[in-house]
Deep mutational scan, measured.
Amino acid sequence: TFYNFIMGFQNDNTPFGILAEHVSEDKAFPRLEERHQVIRAYVMSNYTDHQLIETTNRAISLYMANL
Rank of each mutant, 00 (worst) to 15 (best):
F2L: 05
Y3P: 00
N4W: 07
F5G: 00
I6D: 00
M7W: 03
G8N: 11
G8Q: 15
F9K: 02
F9C: 04
F9R: 01
Q10G: 07
D12N: 12
N13P: 13
T14G: 15
T14S: 14
T14V: 03
T14M: 03
T14D: 05
P15E: 14
F16Y: 08
G17A: 11
G17Q: 06
L19Q: 02
L19F: 04
L19K: 00
L19D: 02
A20E: 02
E21T: 15
E21L: 15
E21Y: 13
H22L: 10
V23Y: 05
V23M: 11
S24H: 13
D26A: 04
D26Q: 05
K27F: 08
K27S: 11
F29T: 06
F29R: 04
F29E: 02
P30A: 03
P30N: 02
P30H: 03
P30Y: 04
R31L: 05
R31E: 04
E33Q: 05
E33T: 06
R35C: 12
R35I: 04
H36L: 14
H36S: 12
V38S: 08
V38F: 08
V38L: 08
V38C: 11
I39K: 01
I39R: 00
R40P: 00
R40W: 15
Y42M: 02
Y42E: 01
V43R: 01
M44H: 09
M44K: 10
S45G: 09
S45V: 09
Y47I: 05
T48C: 07
T48H: 12
D49H: 06
H50W: 11
Q51N: 13
Q51M: 12
I53R: 09
E54V: 09
E54R: 08
T55R: 05
T56I: 14
N57Y: 11
R58T: 10
A59P: 01
A59L: 09
I60M: 08
I60W: 06
S61D: 15
S61L: 14
S61M: 13
L62W: 07
L62H: 06
L62N: 05
L62E: 08
L62V: 10
Y63A: 03
Y63M: 07
Y63N: 01
M64V: 13
M64E: 11
M64A: 09
A65W: 11
N66S: 15
N66K: 07
L67E: 09
L67M: 14
